[in-house]
């Protein structure tokens, strides 16, 4: 591991949300690391903790325990003030391009807000900087003084990306950046994210539930289920050789995009159990076809070197 340039490392991250006397274990002991200039994809059904993971990393939530290392420095316990320099290294793109832009600010104000906060460029250069950012995401200088409602969903997402790029971050957390967009626009945004990555050497944490898009953009993929990563592996390998029964089911549920390919049986039945009442032992055992007695007693650990999987079948 030492020869790799790890820019973001998460160790045993835990985030619970209190609900009355219980707690929702949204993220429960999640660890992973992302190499500089690559993309880690996180997939899973809704409610599995993908977004909470991203929001805890960028410290929109304060994690209950665990370490978040950016370039080797732990930011999990820092105060707001101490966090400021790290916020410059890490930015986020949100799912809903409608609610994530302030309707009352012009595009130029939205993009330059972070420039002001971080005191990045001199006031006289600010306008040029904003225009160069707009050009980078495929918009023109004429768009700078307009308001968000004048743009389509895809254009709004581009504004969101320009805002994230403004402070020249190293890491961008993309929380379902394309799921609110039309198919023909999704590909535009994905291509742009790929271009920006190779141009600026960005590192992405890419969250989505569209498995084919995540596979397309990610080098590594983590499959999450009820707050845990249950499989963590190179994305090509995950598609060729998924090990965890949940990963297999998730891949089988993905549409084939070709009527000539007949799909196999549905492997995943039923719904995700309530995160308030997580099954004992392996969390997936209630929906697993291979569940053994040991699965309800001992929680499997994420094991392996290149292909990590948390399942008793492989331990």
């Amino acid at each position: 591991m030492s020869d790799k340039d790890i820019v973001l490392q998460v160790k045993n991250l835990v985030k619970y949300f209190p609900v009355k006397r219980q707690s929702i274990k949204a993220v429960d002991d999640v660890s992973f690391s992302v190499e500089r200039g690559t993309t880690l994809g996180l997939v899973g059904e809704s409610g599995c903790g993908k977004s909470t993971t991203a929001r805890s990393i960028i410290r929109l939530y304060k994690p209950d325990s665990g370490d978040i290392l950016i370039d080797g420095e732990d930011i999990s316990g820092l105060s707001r003030k101490q966090l400021l320099p790290y916020r410059k290294k890490m930015q986020m793109i949100f799912q809903d391009p409608y609610s994530s832009l302030n309707e009352r600010m012009t595009v130029s104000d939205i993009i330059s807000e972070s420039l002001l906060v971080h005191n990045i460029c001199a006031p006289k250069d600010r306008k040029d900087h904003v225009i160069s950012l707009l050009n980078k995401v495929g918009l023109s200088a004429g768009h700078a003084n307009r308001y968000p409602h004048e743009f389509s969903g895809g254009q709004r997402q581009r504004i969101g990306i320009a805002r994230a790029l403004a402070v020249q971050p190293e890491i961008i957390l993309c929380d379902e950046p394309i799921s609110a967009l039309d198919v023909s626009i999704q590909a535009q945004v994905i291509n742009m994210l790929e271009d920006l990555q190779s141009e600026l050497g960005l590192t992405y944490l890419f969250i989505a539930h569209d498995l084919s898009m995540v596979r397309h953009i990610s080098k590594q993929m983590g499959v999450m289920y009820l707050g845990k990563i249950i499989e963590l592996v190179d994305s090509e390998e995950l598609y060729k050789n998924p090990l965890h029964p949940y990963s297999k089911g998730l891949l089988a549920a993905n549409p084939t995009q070709d009527p000539r390919i007949t799909k196999g049986d549905i492997l995943l039945k039923g719904d995700v159990p309530s995160p308030l009442d997580v099954p004992s032992g392996c969390r997936f055992r209630t929906r697993c076809n291979y569940a053994k007695p040991i699965c309800s007693e001992i929680e499997p650990e994420l094991k392996g070197t290149d292909h990590q999987v948390a399942c008793h079948l492989y331990q």
Binding site: S152, G154, Q155, D182, V183, S184, I185, Q186, A187, Q188, I190, N191, E194, L211, S212, M213, R215, H216, E236, N254, P255, T256, Q257, D258, I261
Partner: peptide, 26 residues
């Protein structure tokens, strides 16, 4: 054709193939 080309192919080797989006907006 544009729609079909803007989705990644699930089968086979999808790496290193660029998506071909439809330019512009509706």
């Amino acid at each position: 054709l544009g729609l079909l080309n803007s989705i990644p192919v699930v089968t086979g080797d999808s790496k290193n193939t660029r998506l071909e989006p439809i330019p512009g907006t509706p």
